[in-house]
Computed example of a mutant assay.
Amino acid sequence: MLHLNKIHHIAIISADYERSKKFYTEILGLTVIQEIYRSERQSYKLDLALNGSYVIELFSFPDPPARPSRPEAAGLRHLAFEVDDVAAIIDTLHEQGIEAEPIRVDAQTGRKFTFIADPDDLPIEFYERNV
Rank of each mutant, 00 (worst) to 15 (best):
G97L: 06
L79W: 02
Y127V: 04
S53N: 15
D106S: 03
G29A: 09
Q96E: 04
H8Y: 07
D85H: 08
S20A: 15
K45W: 04
T25C: 07
N51K: 14
F126W: 13
A117C: 07
K22Y: 10
A87C: 03
H9I: 06
I89N: 04
E57H: 10
V131F: 11
E82N: 02
S20Y: 03
I13K: 12
F59I: 04
L28E: 09
G29L: 11
K21T: 09
A107E: 15
P71S: 12
D121M: 12
I36G: 00
H94G: 00
Q96V: 06
P68W: 00
I33G: 01
K22N: 07
N5M: 11
E95G: 05
E57N: 11
S43T: 10
G75W: 03
N130G: 03
S39E: 15
F61W: 12
V83W: 02
D91E: 14
P68Y: 05
E18H: 12
R67Q: 09
I98W: 04
D106E: 07
L122G: 09
Q34A: 14
L46H: 06
K6C: 03
G97P: 03
D118E: 05
S43E: 14
E82P: 00
D121K: 14
E57M: 01
I10G: 01
K6E: 07
F81V: 07
V86E: 08
P62G: 05
K112T: 03
N5V: 05
I7D: 01
E82T: 06
D121A: 14
A49N: 07
S20G: 03
L2P: 15
I116N: 03
F81N: 03
D16R: 13
Y17A: 08
H78W: 08
P123A: 13
D118G: 09
L48S: 11
L76Y: 11
H94L: 11
A117H: 11
A73E: 09
I36A: 05
Y54H: 11
M1I: 09
Y44A: 13
K112E: 04
D85W: 01
K112L: 03
I56M: 02
Y17K: 06
I124S: 02
